[in-house]
Amino acid sequence: MTALLLDDPTSQVHAAAVGWEYPLSREAAALADLFDAFAKANYKKVVPYPRPWSTGPRGRTVGKGTAMTPEEFHAAWAKRVAEVSSQPQ
């Protein structure tokens, strides 16, 4: 059951596991992308539609960002999933 919730971006479990502020459906992500493309084509000053993984002032990027190898990413992901799984409910 937990694996299904981790794979579903609309679940709170997935959002917590990947560090998002809130869950977001695939449809909502697609609509946000369409909105951004429309705004970019029709307006001069464009503010992107907010995403839960935003890297703005409230985002999680430090400095210029970091580049991870796939092995580092998988290790960090496993650690984060273990942390979320071990938290009492």
Rank of each mutant, 00 (worst) to 15 (best):
L4A: 12
K40M: 10
T66S: 11
A78L: 13
A39S: 14
A39C: 09
E72H: 07
P23C: 10
K79F: 11
P88W: 01
L31F: 09
A29R: 10
A82I: 03
H74T: 14
V46A: 01
Q87L: 13
S54L: 02
P48N: 01
P88H: 01
F73P: 00
A30G: 02
A82E: 14
A30K: 05
L5Y: 02
K45A: 12
A32W: 00
P70T: 04
A41I: 07
T2G: 11
A39L: 06
T66A: 11
R26C: 06
A41P: 03
A82Y: 02
K45E: 14
A32Y: 00
A30I: 11
A37I: 08
H74C: 12
E83Q: 13
S54W: 00
F38I: 08
G56N: 15
V13N: 00
P23V: 10
M68I: 07
P48W: 05
A75I: 07
P52G: 01
A17P: 01
S25F: 08
A41N: 10
R51D: 13
W20E: 04
E21G: 09
D7P: 00
G19V: 00
L6S: 03
V18H: 02
A78G: 07
F38N: 06
T69K: 09
K64V: 03
P9Q: 06
